[in-house]
């Protein structure tokens, strides 16, 4: 399944891509920001950084049995630091449709678009 985040800035596009990741699983509006998790990622380029960021979230969701609905991302060069806000997965409340196995390099792109915005996208395996 493809996910795509748009933002005025690159970090915002990364935040929106993460939100799209949640939308693959459940309605993000159903996720309450009860707790937060901190993430840092480093990669040689923006595209690999996006994959690392999404895979870090996927890992935390799988091991911590949590789901995230809001994200605060900052990127300096190719270093990302982020806070993800969410709550433990509640199967009756969130009705999670599918677990995500991993973010792939397929259709992977991080680029500026017309109007000076940014898009961050890839296909995730479910």
């Amino acid at each position: 399944m493809g996910i795509r985040g748009f933002g005025v800035t690159k970090p915002q596009a990364f935040e929106q891509a993460a939100l799209a990741l949640t939308a693959v699983i459940t309605d993000p509006q159903q996720v309450d920001p009860q707790m937060e998790r901190h993430f840092t990622c480093d990669a040689p380029d923006d595209e690999l950084l996006l994959v690392d960021w999404l895979n870090a979230l996927i890992y935390e969701m799988a091991c911590g049995h949590v789901i995230f609905g809001r994200f605060d991302v900052t990127i300096t060069d190719h270093h990302l630091s982020a806070i993800a806000h969410g709550e433990p997965v509640d199967r009756s409340k969130h009705e999670p449709a599918v677990e995500i196995k991993g973010a792939t390099y397929t259709e992977l792109a991080v680029r500026q678009i017309e109007g000076n915005g940014w898009v961050a996208q890839c296909v995730v395996d479910v």
Partner: peptide, 14 residues
């Protein structure tokens, strides 16, 4: 399996 796939894909790309 998912995690092994993720990690070795990255290693092999690099």
């Amino acid at each position: 399996g998912h995690q092994i796939g993720t990690e070795y894909l990255k290693k092999m790309v690099e």
